[in-house]
Design a protein around this nucleic acid. Structure first.
Length: 541
DNA sequence: CGTTTTTGACCAGCGC
DNA sequence: GCGCTGGTCAAAAACG
């Protein structure tokens, strides 16, 4: 009797439990629908914004086309190096790209809505698989002179470090190693030397989660040195571009001491040769950041530049240097908190802008990265312009800006896109799932929203566009391909991802965001020196 | 055999 | 001036 009653009770309890679950599921669905509706509205608005912005942009390009054709003639006249004739400035742009190894696996991809976690996972996967960064920029009018400011004489006499093209890192950053400078001086290149000294050096650092020794950026590199840098047990490798014999571009590759799954690739110099198509993606990204820094620092004065000066830098990007385009966005860029430290000090500080596209989704992790990304170089204050993503759909979504402070723990002049972007992007993630909108469209919308809501982000995008234009219009045959090419970042990324092997056939990391897939092997947290890396490489081959 | 990598040496800049 | 550090060179080794 009692047993029977208990059974009935249990049954009823079980039933009520199921009922509750059903109700909660229904409530959840309702919430999701409401959110969906909100997001649709938001997307609609963003689409409108994007269209208007795009139209304005096209108009500006068309307006500037005649100007460019005339100003391009001045490229060989060292247009404004004199303007740059301040002390040599070390510029350091750090871009962080990459993915998280802890990302949801493909197996996790299910469409059930039983939990928000699962939903997020599937959303991330969908985004990862489909999103592309699509500025959708038409290069029809891309005879660019936006980089001409940085483009010095290209006479045959120019030594390696002087050959500056409208290319990635553009902006006149050169690689004037002291020895090369000495050599050039012995060759009687006094004038050139003075130019070199005046030309600012920009560094573009790409931080990517990568389990291979180097990252496939589309170029061919030859290793010429390796050093143990202070504060990082992982050796720093020095590579030189071998696509062209005299290409001055070099890069440093080093694992992050804090998170050895992160590969820090620092580019310096400008390619003096056509870039392979696969290299254009990275070139575009890095040139965007570099040009931003160059432009910003060109207006800076020793020491902290006032916000107005920083804003001027921003404005220079968004208005003057963009092909001379009036990329006139709202003027709240004045509040842009850039900081270009004292360029004449002995410390040669590196303003650092961090495009944090590694997936660091936990706030605590952000804090860690914030303070210790580059612990080995405390002397370099940095500007960190950080673009983080929450998963490995990396360049597809920019946002969730978590600051990475490049070289010390002082958060000076950082630009943080903050949670607003993150939330926005989350919303996009959700929308992406429900609407199956074209990934590129979503991305451009995302960018548009970001552009319209954040002046800093705006500047970066503007610089990216300018660099793309420069490549299209310049002699970067491989980079710009051809005039009128509809260059989309996503396409470029796909090109890269389709080429997981370096030209020399060795496996290198295209970064997961390029591959749109998880790394095949879990990254070992052991000291990842070059030998282990080589072993890993061998294993993968 | 040509190319790439490794690695110790060298150099310059900077701080003390 | 000295030591430290980052960056580069270049010979030797490894690789294909």
């Amino acid at each position: 009797m009692c047993t029977k009653y208990a059974f009935i009770l249990i049954s009823r309890n079980s039933f009520s439990l199921q009922e509750k679950e059903l109700e909660s599921a229904k409530a959840e669905m309702t919430e999701v629908r409401e959110e969906n509706a909100r997001l649709k509205t938001m997307i609609q608005k963003i689409e409108d914004d994007y269209r208007s912005l795009h139209m304005r942009f096209i108009d500006m390009i068309q307006q500037e086309e005649p100007k460019n054709s005339s100003s391009n003639n001045n490229n060989n006249n060292k247009p404004s190096l004199s303007r740059e004739n301040i002390e040599e400035t070390e510029l350091f742009v750090s871009l962080r790209l990459g993915t998280s190894l802890s990302e949801p696996k493909r197996d996790d991809h299910n469409t059930t809505s039983s939990s928000s976690k699962t939903r997020e996972d599937s959303e991330h996967l969908q985004l990862k698989e489909s999103l592309k960064l699509g500025l959708d920029y038409n290069l029809e009018a891309s005879k660019s002179d936006c980089m001409e400011v940085m483009a010095p004489d290209r006479s045959p006499e120019n030594s390696v470090e002087e050959i500056i093209t409208k290319d990635e890192e553009a902006a006149g950053e050169t690689w004037p190693p002291s020895k090369v400078l000495k050599t050039a001086r012995s060759n009687g290149g006094e004038e050139e030397i003075s130019q070199q000294a005046s030309v600012k050096r920009a560094r573009v650092s790409v931080r990517a989660r990568c389990d291979t020794p180097t990252m496939n950026d589309g170029c061919q590199w030859r290793k010429y040195g390796q050093k143990i840098a202070k504060g990082n047990p992982c050796p720093r490798a020095y590579y030189r571009c071998t696509v062209a014999a005299a290409c001055p571009v070099r890069k440093q590759v080093q694992r992050c001491a804090e998170d050895m799954s992160i590969l820090i690739t620092t580019y310096e110099g400008t390619h003096n040769h056509p870039l392979p198509v696969a290299a254009t993606a990275m070139a575009s990204t890095t040139s965007a950041a570099a040009s931003m820094l160059i432009s910003g620092s060109s207006t800076s004065q020793p020491g902290l530049i006032p916000p107005a000066a920083a804003a001027a830098a921003s404005d220079a990007l968004t208005t003057n240097n963009l092909h001379g385009l009036n990329f006139s966005l709202s003027d709240n860029s004045r509040a842009r908190p850039f900081h270009f430290p004292n360029t004449s000090s002995s410390a040669l500080p590196f303003p650092t802008i961090t495009l944090d596209l590694t997936s660091n989704s936990t706030p605590s992790h952000h804090s860690n990265l914030f303070s210790s990304v580059f612990p080995q170089s405390p002397k370099y204050p940095s500007n960190s312009l950080s673009f983080s993503t929450e998963s490995n759909m990396v360049p597809t979504i920019w946002g969730n800006g978590y600051l990475k402070n490049g070289y010390n723990n002082t958060n000076i002049g950082s630009v943080n896109f903050g949670r607003s972007h993150s939330q926005l992007l989350d919303q996009f993630n959700n929308y992406q799932k429900s609407s199956q909108a074209s990934s590129q469209q979503v991305l451009t919308e995302t960018l548009t929203k970001a552009i319209t809501s954040d002046p800093s982000f705006r500047s970066v995008i503007a610089a990216a566009i300018s660099s793309l234009a420069a490549e299209g219009g310049g002699n970067q045959g491989g980079g710009g391909e051809s005039m009128g090419q509809k260059l989309k970042w996503g396409e470029a990324m796909q090109v890269v991802s389709s080429n997981p092997l370096a030209p020399n056939g060795k496996q290198i990391c295209t970064t997961n965001y390029l591959n749109h897939q998880q790394p095949p092997l879990p990254f070992s947290l052991s000291k990842n020196n070059s030998k282990e890396a080589a072993a890993s490489r061998d294993q993968m081959n």
